Computed example of a mutant assay.
Amino acid sequence: MTDVYSPTTAPNPKSSWFIVPSANLDTVRCGVKVMEVLLSFVAFILEEVVSSCVSCSALYFFEFVSCTAFLFTLLLLILLSTTLQNRVGITCWPRLDFLYTAAIALLFFISSIIFSTNSNTPMEKSAVAFGFLATAMFIFDLVLFVKNSGFPFKKDGTPESSNGAPVMADTQPETERLNTSN
């Protein structure tokens, strides 16, 4: 009896909660974001294993950046790859994604440099190495973002209207003069 229904029954693709590729995240960048999460997590774990530190402020800064990168990148990945992005109420996902990725890349780079100057043990050096790998992955994500979507803050070159209506770029200005006779 199931043979009768199988040719006409099709799965509903809109009922899926995982929506990659989507307008905000393609398949390649999804994989890059997964790598960012993993590299940040490994850097954080390696830093946590360090038992003693020469300069603890560098260690704590690296810890903060790697933990923040791990948790917030995981959150961003979950939001961008599921239907939750429609329920959050954020409409500027490309700008948020770009700014977040750029900020974390910069912070990871700075914290890795600071921590590398104060690292003596193999565990600290391993954490720094994963910090630089994570930095490279965040920068690669930015390059892919700009290559695929363009710079999110760039104007498209069309003039903006002062009253909210779009300006027609191909219309010619009026050349006919008004009749000035009384």
Rank of each mutant, 00 (worst) to 15 (best):
S52F: 12
L77H: 01
F115G: 03
L25A: 05
L80F: 05
E36P: 10
R29E: 14
V167D: 04
T73G: 03
V88K: 03
V128F: 01
P152V: 06
C67V: 09
W93T: 02
K33F: 13
I104V: 15
W17E: 13
F132P: 01
L77D: 02
I90M: 11
P13H: 05
V34H: 03
F153A: 02
E48M: 14
M35Y: 10
V54L: 10
F115M: 09
S55E: 12
P13C: 03
V4R: 13
D97A: 05
L96M: 10
F140T: 08
N179C: 13
P94M: 02
F130A: 00
D3F: 13
A127V: 08
C56H: 08
L84G: 08
T135C: 08
A169C: 10
I19E: 10
W17V: 13
L76P: 00
A129F: 09
F72S: 00
F64P: 01
I104E: 00
C92P: 08
V167H: 02
L75Y: 06
V167I: 15
M123E: 14
T83H: 11
T73R: 01
S57Q: 11
R87V: 12
I78N: 13
F109K: 04
L75N: 05
C56T: 07
V34S: 07
N182I: 08
T158E: 13
T171S: 12
K125G: 05
I19Y: 01
M137E: 10
D141Y: 04
P94A: 03
T158P: 07
L59H: 14
S16L: 06
I90K: 07
E174R: 11
S149E: 12
A136P: 02
I90V: 15
L84D: 10
M137F: 11
K155M: 10
L107G: 05
I110Y: 01
T171Q: 13
N118H: 14
L46E: 11
R29V: 02
I45P: 12
A169W: 06
L178M: 10
E36C: 07
S6E: 13
S112V: 07
C30H: 12
S15Y: 07
F151T: 03
L75F: 13
M137N: 09
S22C: 04
F132C: 00
S81Y: 00
T2G: 13
T83P: 07
T101L: 01
D26C: 09
